[in-house]
Write a protein that binds this DNA or RNA. Structure first.
Length: 489
RNA sequence: GGCCCUGUCGUCUAACGGUUAGGACGCCAGAUUUUCAAUCUGGUAACGCGGGUUCGAUUCCCGCCAGGGCUGCCA
């Protein structure tokens, strides 16, 4: 199966677009077909420089690599495939040729109406509570007049002539049987006065020429589908199957917009989300596996995805679950990869981390405690700089550690550590000695371990006392205990 | 206004005539625990409304209501 994703280069990649791209990608991969990327830049006024690179880079981050069409090669925009060009602005001659065919066959007609007249016409229609639609003023022009005005080079567009008496039907892959009455469909502009095609013409021509057999796009295109069907028919082409995916919604259920939150995929990249987490989240917004599985690597999505299980109703883009998925995916990283990923992040603030041979072991202590890599420096800082230990931190009412008790506790801890040699400096050995000491001194676990952990880390919460002591080593542990002891005297 | 789409816990969703309406996130409680996370257990919470059809409707039909999309020489 050949599917495509066809964004407009108007800025960033919208998360809704990413989901559409994901679905198209999954179906292509599932059928061992091709996933194409086409750029729809027929609106000269909206194209933004750099947007193509930006969108491609984001798709690359997500791992949705196009097999054909526009793609990034060594960071540069390139086009690959035999059915190009894949950037619509480079295809205008093609569209003009097909537009001429439509004109010749009588499926389209030139329209000379000025924007002003059209605006007035619409206003009048609305005032009369009529549906705003082109009144076919130019359809009634005589052949000579048309020829004359064309001859003069008068500005005009080309409109699709909708057979008003027809009823257009098709079977949507997601929504089922669809039906539209011709007289409710407007005579759509196909070719603009600047010679560029509108989306409608370009979509039909391109998806036919590029042999796309399944068009996956947002629900906002549902009501223009009859126009597209008519175009395929006018050209005598087999139309593709259509799957209109439900919209992603704001909290108030309106179409997801920039105004009400982060809709740019880049924003989530910047936040530090893993592509696996975002894709997993997006896949489940509108699709379900029919099982109770929640965690889906891309490969499993590819295996299990099906349009039959795509939801018809729109889904509110609520990122709470995304956060949870992010945590899940963090924990799924191998220890080694996790360490490699956070090392540069920690190194930015603590250069020593870059040279630290113990770094992987230390990183392992926080893997299940963080959600984003950027949290790592704050959590591992105590390995690379002296913690700021205060009496307030060392004492803890909940653990029944009073300031008065601290000297005694810290002395006990120091004794334990002094009595534990380097070669027996393990969690088990320390545990054993600590519990023996507890009994002798009449202290509870909390009373002895809270101050130990606090003295070593300077943090109200952190990995456990024993883990930290072992990761820090005997010497540093003793030094920090002494520092803390000095503080409480 | 017209056309079209949609309607199950707060959110994402399962169910395809008969279920104590299931799961996940969130939230709450408990367990674990030196802290914070993580983890485990339990709890909270939904079929928009009204008519049909049927022995029986969340499920099928109709109407209503609500929300949304489109209604551009934007995509």
């Amino acid at each position: 199966m050949r599917t495509r994703f066809a964004p407009s280069p108007t800025g960033f990649l919208h998360v809704g677009g990413l989901r559409t791209a994901l679905y198209a990608y999954l179906l292509a991969k599932q059928t061992k077909g091709k996933f194409l990327l086409r750029i729809e830049d027929t609106d000269q006024t909206r194209s933004v420089p750099g947007a193509i690179e930006n969108i491609l880079a984001t798709l690359h981050w997500a791992g949705l690599h196009p097999d054909e069409g526009v793609m990034l090669r060594k960071g540069v925009v390139a086009q690959e495939g035999t059915k190009g060009p894949y950037i619509q602005s480079e295809r205008v001659e093609i569209y003009r040729k097909f537009a001429a065919e439509l004109l010749a066959k009588g499926h389209a007609y030139p329209c000379f109406c000025s924007p002003e007249r059209l605006t007035k016409m619409r206003e009048a229609q609305i005032a009369k509570k009529q549906a705003p639609m082109y009144d076919r003023h130019c359809l009634n022009l005589s052949k000579q007049e048309i020829a004359q005005r064309l001859e003069k080079g008068e500005s005009h567009v080309l409109r699709l002539r909708i057979p008003r008496e027809r009823t257009l039907t098709y079977e949507d892959e997601i929504r089922g049987a669809m039906q539209f009455k011709g007289h409710t469909v407007d005579d759509q502009v196909l070719l603009k006065s600047d010679g560029f095609p509108t989306y409608h013409l370009a979509h039909v021509v391109d998806d036919h020429l590029m042999e796309i057999d399944l068009v996956i796009r947002g629900e906002e295109w549902l009501s223009s589908t009859p126009k597209h069907l008519l175009l395929f028919e006018a050209f005598g082409w087999q139309p593709p199957r259509y799957a209109h995916v439900p919209l992603l919604l704001n909290k108030d259920k309106s179409k997801l917009s920039k105004r009400q939150g982060d809709v740019a995929t880049e924003e989530y990249i910047r936040e530090g989300y893993l592509p696996e987490a975002l894709l997993n989240f997006l896949a489940l917004l509108g699709w379900n596996p029919g099982s109770e599985q929640e965690i889906f690597p891309l490969a499993e999505l590819t295996e299990q995805f099906s349009l039959e299980r795509v939801q018809k109703a729109g889904a509110i883009f609520d990122t709470e679950k995304l956060l949870w998925l992010q945590g899940q995916w963090m924990r799924r990283l191998s220890r080694q990869e996790f360490a490699e990923r956070i090392r540069p992040v920690v190194g930015e603030r603590f250069p020593d981390a870059l040279r630290d041979s113990h770094f992987p072991a230390r990183a392992a202590l926080i893997q299940e405690r963080l959600t984003f890599f950027k949290e790592a420096p704050a959590m591992l800082g105590f390995f690379y700089e002296e913690p700021k230990v205060t009496v307030e931190l060392l004492a803890n009412p909940k653990q029944k550690v009073t300031p008065e008790l601290l000297p005694k506790i810290l002395r006990a801890l120091t004794e334990i550590c002094e009595a534990t040699l380097d070669d027996e400096w393990t969690e088990d050995a320390l545990k054993e000695k600590v519990s023996a000491k507890m009994k002798v001194e009449g202290l509870s676990q909390g009373q002895i371990l809270w101050p130990l952990r606090a003295a070593l880390t300077g943090l109200p919460y952190s990995p456990g006392a024993y883990e930290v002591a072992v990761a820090l080593g005997r010497d540093t542990t003793l030094t920090r205990l002494q520092t803390a002891a000095a503080r409480v005297e």
